[in-house]
Each structure stands twice: as C-alpha cells, then as structure tokens.
Design a protein around this nucleic acid. Structure first.
Length: 323
DNA sequence: AAGCGCCTCAACCGCTTCGGT
DNA sequence: GACCGAAGCGGTTGAGGCGCT
C-alpha cells in the first residue's frame, strides 16, 4: 500500500470514527430551526466566529462545526445579501467565471454579500440550463464564445438601457428605447483612474463603436491566451458573421482586439492586479448605485427571442460544418 | 383539486489546503 | 519535515415550492 492509499484509508477510518461519535451524541442534520439559528447568532455575537467545532459544542448546538460554519457564512451573517442576482452581478459572474472557472469563493469575493454557494447555485441552475438548451457543453468553446460575444454584450446593453431609463425617468423625458447609444451613456463615460486612458467599461471588456452598437472588443480579455488568437479570430468569424444587425450586435473588430491583447497581455494570465481588482470593485459600486436592481430570467438575455436567435445561429454553423 | 415534473437553494459530503506543534 | 486538526472549497443531493395539465 503506498502512502497515498494509506493516508486515504486512515482518513476513511477517521471519518467512520467521527460518524460513529456523531451518532452517539445524536448530532442533528438537515434544515436549521429558528432556535438553532438564534443560539448560533447569539454565540457568535458574543464570542466571535472561528474554531467551529468547539463553537458548536460551547454554543450547545448538536451540529458539526462544519454545519455551523456553513449556516453562518451562507445564511446568518448580517452582510449576506438576499434576493435575485442583479444584472451587474450577472455580468460580473460571467466575466469572472470566464477568467477563473469554477473558483466560486474567489468569484464571490467580487460580489459583496453574495456567497460562493449562491453563485455556484446560480451558475448551475441558470447557466448550465441554457447551455443544455443550446445543446452544447458549458465548458465548450462554442458556449464560452456565445457568452463572450453575445450574452455579455447583451447584458451590458440591458444595463445601459436600465441606466438610461432611470436617468431619463428622473429628468422627466421619455424613456422608451432599448437601444442605447454611448454618447449619452453615463456608465461608459465614467472615468477610470488606472493610470491610463481607459474608462471603466473599456477596461472591463466592452466597447461601443461609432454607430452606438456594443461590440465585444475586449470581452475576450483574460479568456483566450494570446497564443490562441488564431482560434479566436476563427471563432469570431463564425459568430460575428452571424450577428443580426437588427439586434444591435456586430462582430468584433479584430485589429482592435489584437491591439487590446497586445496592450494587456498581463491580463491574460494569472490573477488580477490590485488595480484590476479595484476596477471590479469600482465597477460594481458604480453600477450598483446607478441602476435599479430588478429580477429577470436568466441574465436577462435569456428571452425566448435571444434563445431562438442563438439556436438559429447554431443551426447555421452546423450546416456550414456539414457542407 | 390532485398529480406530476421541474426548479431552486440550503445543506451535506468528500477532498484539499492551511496552520500550529 | 511530518503530523494532525481545523478550515475552506467545489460537487452533489434532496426537500420544498411552483407551475402546468
């Protein structure tokens, strides 16, 4: 038996032992009662969190330390935000997931008040559902590109629309259009102090072209390594060429994207710099303050119309491949 | 109204990582 | 450096809610 197998066996024995102990002292499992919540909250309020196993014992809770920790972090903590994931949060989740994959706790760090569990659940229930509907794997390049070049721009569009709607409503003028131009876009024009000339949205990964369309210029950021740029171009060709102008989406300007990649190669690998992290925080705070939070299906890009469009595009691509 | 299927999310499980000794 | 317990993390499960027939 090698060391690893021996270690696993020891761990297994430990688990069996712990389970037996748990059975002996009649540990509770399943949903928490109001009384248990009250005990946990009052104990933590007095003594603070940490040392969860002893905390569980001292608080008189017939729960494992793990269970107490989870209950506190995911539900009872005062700063936990309840309610639907907002548009801007959805956008952040998409972007950060494209960067880090299933690093839920890391993603959660950039969404104040949201737990890794909540984000994980959100991803599994909403995103994977739509990947399934599109009949593609959630980890496939096709799905990632669909997110990058269609859904994320779409989300930004809707965030801007919500923003424009809010601002025009407050000034008393009509707010009816869902097509947002950048000239009046407060969000896009917000200066971003990163020592460079980027504004927040540009840094974040989305740009507008002179026609007012949202282009996914930089939404490729930090996703495809620079060495995959050839693939990137071909994927862009496939997807971008299928964009329906009626939906205010255009294909990426490859040369500009190349410039972006050249200028931001540091973004393509590894973790965020402090400045980039601050950018996310700023972005979140900025849009959170400006845009009314409202719930919607999926990313709010998941309308039947959008889904139909995506499916049509898939069919066209499949036909091209078949021919 | 009842039955059914789907969806959501709180909670659990198992493994890995961290930190103290 | 090895060991061990605690904490953290990501995957999975299942109860309950909801909508549809």
């Amino acid at each position: 038996m090698d060391d690893k197998a021996r270690s696993l066996k020891i761990n297994k024995n430990m688990e069996d032992y712990e389970n037996n102990v748990e059975d002996e002292i009649d540990l509770r499992r399943g949903p928490w009662t109001v009384e248990e919540d009250f005990h946990l909250i009052s104990y933590i309020t007095t003594h603070g969190e940490g040392r969860w196993n002893s905390l569980a014992r001292c608080a008189g809770l017939k729960r494992t330390g793990k269970s107490c920790r989870l209950r506190w972090l995911n539900y009872l903590r005062p700063d936990v935000r309840r309610g639907n994931i907002t548009l801007e949060e959805q956008l952040l989740i998409l972007e950060l997931h494209s960067r880090w994959g299933n690093r839920w706790s890391k993603i959660a760090q950039y969404l104040p008040g949201r737990t890794d569990n909540e984000i994980k659940n959100y991803w599994r229930t909403r995103v994977q559902k739509h990947a399934k509907q599109l009949r593609c794997d959630v980890n496939s390049q096709q799905f990632k590109d669909t997110m990058r070049y269609l859904w994320m721009p779409r989300l930004v569009e809707r965030i801007q629309a919500a923003s424009a709607s809010t601002s025009t409503t407050t000034t008393g003028s009509a707010a009816t259009s869902s097509c947002v131009t950048t000239s009046s876009d407060q969000f896009l024009m917000t200066p971003y102090d990163d020592g460079g000339n980027n504004n927040k949205m540009e840094h974040y990964g989305l740009m507008s072209n002179p026609n007012g369309y949202i282009t996914p210029e930089i939404s490729s950021l930090a996703v495809s390594p620079a060495s995959d740029f050839t693939d990137y171009q071909s994927e862009v060709g496939k997807i971008g060429n299928n964009y329906n102008p009626d939906h205010n989406l255009v294909g990426p300007q490859v040369s500009a994207s190349q410039n972006y990649l050249d200028n931001n190669s540091g973004l393509l690998n590894g973790d965020l710099t402090a400045t980039q992290e601050q950018c996310y925080v700023d972005l979140f705070e900025n849009v959170s303050g400006m845009i009314p939070s409202y719930s919607d299906s999926f990313w709010n890009i998941g309308s039947d119309e959008d889904l139909w469009l995506l499916q049509q595009q898939q069919q066209q691509q499949q036909q091209v491949l078949n021919n």
